[in-house]
Write a protein that binds this DNA or RNA. Structure first.
Lengths: 236, 236
DNA sequence: CGGCAAATTGAGGTAGATCAATGTCGGTGG
DNA sequence: CCACCGACATTGATCTACCTCAATTTGCCG
């Protein structure tokens, strides 16, 4: 297994203690002395859209906390289609399996400009041995991953195409402004929901024509949610 | 929230140290002194097919390690259909979310005669504080849950009905004798794969007629796998 | 034997796939 | 500034895999 060269930009070694999103992620509970015991470097990396953080089957030596941007986890089918298994946003961790498995179980690809911290598994294991404070955070991250996976299946991979698209729009609401929802290319949306791009396009257009959502740009990415109740209509 | 009375049979308080499947599950690494520090009782329970271990939204005070049988995790849609999110077998843990969440995120229902150990979360937290030996096992269980969830999506909820059924038969192979595969009612199989029961029946019959599998009983549950390569054919 | 639950099979309908044409935006170069 | 181009969204017209409705069969059990 020859790992494909990652096309990432190194932005320096992280100063975890002053990290803006530290509270959200693994190191939330750590104290001064814990940081002093970290000996391996934690790198601060940037990825351009479309580039892989890691490949399926690649040796898993580090995990990645997402600082900003959106990452898709995917599996390739033998005939080259991609099945998007779930999405990661700021505060999520990619490649948790590095902690208990020798290889990554899916591929992680930046969908936007993405910045991550790359943490060698050794660091986690050291901290874990030294202090129990990191356990709660690890547990929280695992739990979040399972919940996301289950939600993905039950919400956007179940029922009619119309229902899936409605649920997807709800799932992509901005945390800051829940009136807005930013989507992706119709093809990628299809790979997430198990639909073809034309079907996705038709359903989005239909919601737009029905006045349930209103486009905020001319490229079909960001919409304002006019009638959230209609999106929640869970019938058929 | 009034928890629905569980319809389980109490079989006694577990003697964890002499448990036959201990090595597979959470307490694998524990030592004598650890067991002595367990003060809350760990119950040994039996559930009949169709009975719930816990409901979605119910207060999560315990988790369950499956000793034998098959448990389905499911979510109810507003219109009463059930979406089976994944299956648990001997050695799996149901309700891990009890460790970080106040309530259960899905319902767990016995599909067969099931025997489980019911472990109060307090016990896990105590052990966790006292010794690090249980952490590796918890991590392994979380990892397993995420992997199962991802596999469920990528293997049996993707592609044509024929492909889904083929993958499902492979997933249900006996660990002891991989020549055999035991299925479920066509309706439950449909709920797992996002298909209707008639479609499942047609695809199973087609494989049987094509000589890829051969029925071992007259009720369509257990089949012998004749041509594993044909089941793996991942094209379309 | 009769009755129930579940699997199978058939016939016809439909949601979504497929194939194809057109439209729109943004960038690039003259 | 405008012409051209590539990427992507949209829309239309068929096609088909799966759903729906319905009848029949099979095994199980009192």
């Amino acid at each position: 297994m020859i790992p494909i060269k990652t096309e990432s930009a190194w932005r320096g070694t992280s100063d975890c203690q002053s990290c803006g999103i530290r509270a959200m992620v693994l190191f939330a509970d750590l104290e001064q002395q814990d940081f002093e015991s970290i000996h391996s470097p934690i790198d601060d990396l940037e990825y351009r859209p479309g580039h892989s953080l890691y490949q399926e089957g690649e040796q898993a030596l580090s995990l990645f906390t997402v600082r900003s941007g959106t990452v898709k986890l995917l599996r390739m089918t033998p005939d080259g289609q991609q099945r998007i298994v779930r999405l990661l946003r700021a505060g999520d961790v990619a490649g948790l399996e590095a902690l208990t498995s020798a290889t990554f179980e899916n591929e992680a690809v930046a969908m936007t400009e993405v910045s991550v911290c790359c943490i060698p598994v050794g660091v986690i294991h050291d901290l874990s041995r030294r202090s129990p404070r990191i356990h709660a955070q690890l547990m929280k991250q695992w739990h979040h991953a399972v919940k996301q996976a289950d939600d993905w299946l039950a919400d956007i991979n179940f029922g009619s195409a119309a229902r899936r698209v409605r649920q997807f729009i709800l799932k992509m609401r901005h945390t800051t402004d829940p009136e807005l929802s930013t989507l992706f290319s119709r093809e990628e949306m299809g790979a997430m929901m198990g639909l073809k791009l034309e079907t996705v396009s038709r359903e989005v257009s239909a919601l737009s024509k029905a006045g349930v959502i209103a486009p905020m740009d001319k490229v079909g990415r960001t919409y304002r949610i006019i009638n959230a109740a209609a999106l929640n209509a869970d019938d058929q």
